[in-house]
Amino acid sequence: MKKTLRQIAGTALSSLPILALANYDVNIPAPHSPISDQIYGLHMEILWVCLAIFVVVFGVMFYSVFAHRKSKGAVAAHFHENTTIEIIWTLIPFLILGFMAWPATQTVLAMKDASNPDMTIKVTAYQWMWQYEYLNDGVKFYSVLSTPRDQIGSTEQHGKPTNEHYLLETDNNVVVPVGKKIRLLITANDVIHGWYVPQLGVNQYGIPGFIKDSWFKANEPGVFRGQCSQICGKEHGYMPIVVEAKSAEDYAVWVKEQKAKQAAAESHDKVSLADPVAR
């Protein structure tokens, strides 16, 4: 017990450099796609409506809590019904909900419309990595967490997370051209996983035996990080997604590199691609 306590204290102290990077973000990270833009806007709208209702309703309640106290000599009234007011406070919420539902409906229709994409990437989830197949460009690779295992640690050997993008970094990033509509065809090989990149407004289960589609368009170049959103076994926390949006030219260069790499790997060692669990 004492040893464990010391260990905990030790790791707590050793994690101090992380504390220096204190992060108290309280909102959805900056959106970078048309859909996540709309999601951000919808969330803010609803949040303000809810806050306004909260302030009004609980303003009334806390006024009552402070004013209508027995200790202040309040004498209880006897009313227990008022049909008019009950109808009013049933109808008003309907109006507020209609006001919320209208823009939300527009976004649902937009996000479900994966037609006419500029390119298509097939995503296959495995326990515990992702495979990406660029159906238009013939690029195909696996993407695995690149954070070293000794940083993660275990109960025997506690980890020391030092990488800046600890747990949100992969060996092969998903590179996409900026401003193009990318359709994703998402599936899984073993259990259900979730392809989740909040800044691009995508969170879609990959379901073994079925292909589901989704889409995104990166507004500007950048690196967008996410991870598996559906529990998929013991390494669920260790299958990140990193999307790199590049200009059309840089993307073309990347495709060329990938193809060269693929050709080299194929002549070299066919087994490594054919057997995803060989790592």
Binding site: W89, A101, A104
Partner: peptide, 30 residues
């Protein structure tokens, strides 16, 4: 499912309003 779920806010709101109206002009102790 979005519309149906949002609808639940209406009867739930009614309940909250009723509880607050019960407190209103009562003689409360805590």
């Amino acid at each position: 499912f979005m519309y149906a779920t949002m609808l639940i806010a209406v009867p739930t709101g009614v309940k909250v309003f009723n509880w607050i109206a019960t407190m209103w002009k009562g003689s409360m102790t805590f």
